[in-house]
Design a protein around this nucleic acid. Structure first.
Lengths: 330, 330
DNA sequence: ATGAAAGCGCTAACAA
DNA sequence: TTGTTAGCGCTTTCAT
């Protein structure tokens, strides 16, 4: 900037003002300075700017992942969320600082905040970190979390209507005449727990003769789900429908079923959760509960910026919609 | 830091040294200071540190995306790459600054660099930006690119053996007796172009009676590929195998084929490219060319850090391996 | 082994 | 309207 000032024959402060578009500096001079800066490929140093302004124009996006579950950063839903967050954050002229958090880690959130690398934090997925979030949120406002809303929660979440979505999925299966519906997935973390609860509730409301809730445990990875379903089938388990906690494991479940000689959807219907972009394109295509990632991301960012301004924002629950496709026709 | 200094009854410079683990400061005092910092949840301000040190401990990861192609940041391969990059970068104590670049944008790379937000840049995918990269690389060393190696290229790439992988895919199909093999995808960008070239070459080397190269154009999105394959079938096109430029479009192709009444793999075999995590779990599971994302990411980061130290590193081509599954059995 | 002081590049309160 | 100046929080050279 000193260089530009010298070239323009003015003081740095004038350059600073000109580049900030201040009306204080004479229009002609301002244009000349801006032009000069462009010619020389000069852009203001955001580090120095941040130090001076005490704000970084950065948002941290933290993704807590269970190490033991081997959960990679490749879950398509999280990733779609990340993409849309990048979009929304960039649109506001902010940068995105990506933090992959491998649990269990001590004080990960406090450290992200204390480091001052960002003006606000988005956490994608509560995972098992409800307590951490509770604690940190007490003293730090600009924090929003994608996830489930939990009674007594003190932090701000945006998330889908997990129980409602799950219930809609199971009711759809019941209406199609299915009576032995298993839940595939591990209800670790509030979101999946709520999906399980929705599943249970729908079964409680089911016609007589419907089999009671039954869970097939599996981490949210393709391999885990595949293995779990195979074992279950070989153990002679009988069911005519699967409600999977996510699309990724629903797809694995279909493969396991077909490989073990069960026709999908004729013998076993499958419903997933998320509506990832591939869901419409698998064979058979996947009946699922859509979470609107794009709106979710926009809402998260919107709330975050309001919190960055000091506003106390409430949590938001977005509708989750049943999408009927081939794996569980109507 | 001033606070910690006051609490410890020493000068800030001593605290700075202590926290940096300098041997200059007396061991006992150092421990006391470190302890004090931890108790008070103090961590050094990386912004101030960056300004002073003239390095940010940050790496920018830029993902150029074609706007017109509607290509989202959700391509599973890119995303897996991003995850592994996050891993490798974090391991070295650096942060990751994610930049989604929507093309065409003017000077995107120059701006990322000039902004000084990071000490090095990883670009995932050359896309149509070969010229930009050539130009920038002339004056900026700490830059690595995931993509194809191009004759006359002046920047450092890491990428798979695209022609070799494509050739292996087509030879596999030929060996299985397929003679009318179409290429599905749009060879925009060097990587896909090289895959197409490998396809062409394998066909030139094919037995007599093999149909000549034939391309079905489609952007790398599920919808585009689905539509393209359907139209092609309805137009009465005849083929017994598809080599798709990516797994995502291979999966869509399978769905289109099945929906139009073609058995996969009996009537039409399908081979993809990437080996995304879902490829093993679709129905039928996908024969594909594996790109080793993890090694790719590690190599990129390794080369980047060497470049950040001033070393001129050469480009690297990684092997691409044929994985035979159900969609195109041996 | 520790303290004093300068300065990284920028912005803004104040002065002119 | 522009310039002067102080200071954001840190590291490091120099002096002690």
């Amino acid at each position: 900037m000193t260089d530009i000032a010298r070239l323009a024959g003015v003081h740095v402060s004038t350059v600073s003002r000109a580049l900030a578009g201040s009306p204080l500096v004479e229009a002609g001079k301002r244009r000349r300075i801006v032009q000069l800066a462009r010619e020389h490929g000069y852009v203001v140093n955001p580090v120095a700017r941040s130090l001076r302004l005490q704000r970084t124009q950065m948002v941290s996006v933290a993704i807590p992942l269970q190490h033991e579950a081997g959960q990679p950063l490749t879950d398509p839903f999280f990733v779609a969320m990340l993409g849309h967050l990048a979009e929304a954050i960039t649109q506001r002229g902010y940068g995105l600082n990506l933090q992959k958090v491998v649990l269990p880690t001590h004080e990960w959130l406090a450290e992200i905040i204390a480091s001052g690398r960002s003006d606000g934090v988005v956490v994608i997925g509560q995972s098992t970190e409800h307590d951490t979030l509770q604690q940190v949120a007490a003293a730090y406002l600009p924090l929003v979390v994608w996830g489930a809303q939990i009674p007594g929660q003190r932090y701000c979440t945006v998330g889908s209507d997990n129980p409602g979505g799950a219930r809609a999925a199971v009711r759809h299966l019941l209406k199609a005449g299915r009576r032995r519906i298993v839940f595939l997935g591990d209800p670790t973390g509030p979101e999946l727990r709520q999906r399980y609860e929705g599943y249970e509730r729908a079964l409680r409301e089911a016609p007589r003769g419907t089999a009671p809730p039954r869970r097939v445990s599996a981490h949210l990875t393709p391999d885990a789900a595949y293995t779990a379903v195979c074992e279950c089938l070989r153990a002679g388990d009988r069911f005519d429908a699967v409600f999977a906690a996510s699309d990724v494991i629903a797809i694995s479940a279909i493969r396991a079923l077909v490989n073990e000689g069960r026709a999908v959807p004729q013998e076993v219907a499958v419903v997933g959760f998320d509506d990832i972009s591939l869901a419409a394109h698998t064979t058979p295509s996947l009946t699922t509960i859509r979470q609107d990632v794009e709106q979710g991301a926009r809402t998260l960012v919107d709330l975050l910026f309001r919190r960055m301004e000091g506003e106390e924002t409430p949590s938001v629950v977005l509708p989750a919609e049943l999408i009927v496709r081939e794996s569980a026709p109507g």
